[in-house]
């Protein structure tokens, strides 16, 4: 037997040719030239240290328009350079998208969140990426710019293809992400299981967003999404559907959890086995719905619904 793999490359950053344009046009020139987009760098730079590539990067932090974010009644629009730290400090964001706010708070550590961007977490497309299930239940759309002026919106569900793979084509830039804010009678939440309380990857995670009828009990609409139990974050359509038209009870929650656990596609690896991940999904779905119920109550005047 012989082998071609000769060495373990020492984990140090390679020489990097770094471009720092201040306009979108400049960014596109670099992308066309083969440069990888560098925003917060919390995923890309450790990757580059370990793998010795990419060696050409374009930092988009100098492009002013990519730093914008807006929260209006209907939708939140987050530019590519907006850090998770910035978002979490914004009260309007926390109110408008509680599940996304929950999920951002789990990412890495304070220092990492102050460096890492929300869109970076999306583009890394990790099956365990914390913000992905939360963004899915908030109906996120990724804004893809093919060239200056050529923009299209792709739903996050379509955008995520496989671990580390998105539908972003060579020469394209993910320039922002937008998602729905909560409307009246809606609430969302995100929960995950980790072995450690901080600085950890989700072994399984669940986000949900529920719309209640005017009575405050009956579920009028539901979205459930799962993380770390499939090649990408998954929308659990059947599980969500099972809730609609019923009031939340122990039974409806457990039916929803059972469907989610059944329909997810976990793998076994050194972090956890597939059947344990299914069990976690079952527990987390009920927990998340319970959390939503509680939050919905708190937001109601006079504690109605108690």
């Amino acid at each position: 037997m012989g082998s071609q793999v000769s060495i373990i490359r020492p984990s140090y950053l390679p020489e990097i040719e770094l471009f720092r344009p201040s306009s979108i046009d400049g960014v596109f020139e670099c992308i066309k030239d083969g440069a990888r987009v560098l925003a917060g760098g919390t995923d890309l730079l450790p990757w580059a240290s370990q793998h010795g590539q990419p060696r050409k990067m374009v930092w988009i932090g100098n492009v002013e328009p990519l730093h914008g974010f807006s929260v209006d009644d209907e939708r939140l629009q987050i530019g590519a350079c907006v850090t998770q730290g910035e978002l979490i400090r914004c009260a309007d964001f926390r109110r408008a998208a509680p599940a996304v706010a929950d999920s951002v708070q789990f990412v890495g550590s304070v220092q990492l969140r102050n460096q890492a961007t929300l869109l970076g977490n999306v583009c890394s497309a990790s099956p365990a990426g914390d913000t992905l299930p939360a963004l899915l239940v908030h109906e996120a759309q990724v804004e893809i710019t093919g060239a200056p002026g050529q923009e299209r919106q792709v739903s996050l569900d379509d955008f995520l293809l496989a671990p580390g793979k998105t539908m972003l084509a060579p020469g394209e830039l993910a320039s922002g992400v937008s998602f729905c804010g909560l409307r009246a009678n809606e609430m969302s939440a995100y929960r995950r299981h980790t072995e450690r309380r901080a600085l950890d990857l989700a072994v399984a995670s669940v986000a949900a967003r529920l719309v209640f009828e005017a009575d405050g009990y009956t579920v009028a609409g539901a979205r459930v999404a799962l993380g770390a139990v499939g090649p990408t974050a998954l929308v659990a359509i059947e599980a969500a559907k099972s809730l609609v038209g019923h009031p939340l009870t122990g039974e409806t929650k457990s039916i929803c959890a059972a469907i989610a656990a059944e329909t997810c596609k976990p793998i076994s690896d050194f972090r956890a086995s597939a059947d344990y991940r299914r069990q976690l999904v079952k527990v987390l779905v009920e927990d998340v719905i319970g959390e939503i119920e509680q939050r919905a109550r708190i937001f109601k005047p006079n504690g109605e619904g108690r």
Partner: peptide
């Protein structure tokens, strides 16, 4: 780093 990447080792 360049030197290390250029090193060739054959194993059995």
């Amino acid at each position: 780093m360049r030197g290390i990447e250029a090193l060739r080792i054959d194993y059995e």
